[in-house]
C-alpha cells in the first residue's frame, strides 16, 4: 500500500510539472494557442478510457471472440488520432511561426508528461482491480 501511495504522489507531481510546462509555454510568450494541446490531451484521456469497459465486457461475454469488435477498434483509432494531433499541433504552429519553437518544445513535453501520467494511472488502477478479483 505504501508503494501505491508513493506512486500516486509521484504521478501527481509529474502531472503538476506537465501542467506547469504547458501553462508556462503559453504565458512566457503571451500567446495562448498552445493551450489547445492540453485540450487535445484531455480528449485523449476520454478516448483512452472510453473503449476500456467495452473491451472488458467483450472478454466477459464470450471468450472465443476475444476483444476484437468494431466499437473497440473505433475507440483505439480515435485515441491514436487524438494523441498524434496533440503532438502535431504545436509542431505545426511553430512551423508557421505562430508560436515560438521553445514554446512548442515545452508544450510537447508538458503534454507528453500529462498523457503519460494518465496512462500510468489507468494502468495502475486496472492492475489493482485484477488483483482484487
Amino acid at each position: 500500500m505504501a508503494a501505491g501511495l508513493r506512486t500516486v504522489i509521484l504521478l501527481s507531481f509529474v502531472l503538476a510539472v506537465g501542467f506547469l510546462l504547458i501553462i508556462l509555454s503559453c504565458a512566457l510568450w503571451h500567446n495562448w494557442l498552445p493551450l489547445l494541446v492540453a485540450l487535445f490531451f484531455f480528449e485523449a484521456l476520454t478516448f483512452v478510457l472510453a473503449p476500456l469497459p467495452n473491451a472488458l465486457f467483450a472478454h466477459c461475454g464470450s471468450d472465443e471472440y476475444g476483444e476484437s469488435s468494431g466499437p473497440v477498434d473505433l475507440g483505439r483509432f480515435f485515441t491514436s488520432i487524438v494523441v498524434v494531433s496533440g503532438f502535431a499541433l504545436p509542431i505545426i504552429l511553430a512551423h508557421s511561426e505562430v508560436i515560438d519553437p521553445k514554446a512548442c518544445a515545452m508544450s510537447i513535453i508538458g503534454g507528453g508528461l500529462v498523457y503519460g501520467t494518465i496512462l500510468a494511472y489507468s494502468a495502475a488502477f486496472s492492475q489493482e482491480d485484477s488483483e482484487y478479483e
Partner: peptide, 18 residues
Amino acid sequence: GVYLAGALFALANWTFLD
C-alpha cells in the same frame, strides 16, 4: 495495426493542414 492506422490518418491530415 489499428493504432498505427489512426496515427497515419492523423499524420496525413496534419501534413496538409500544416
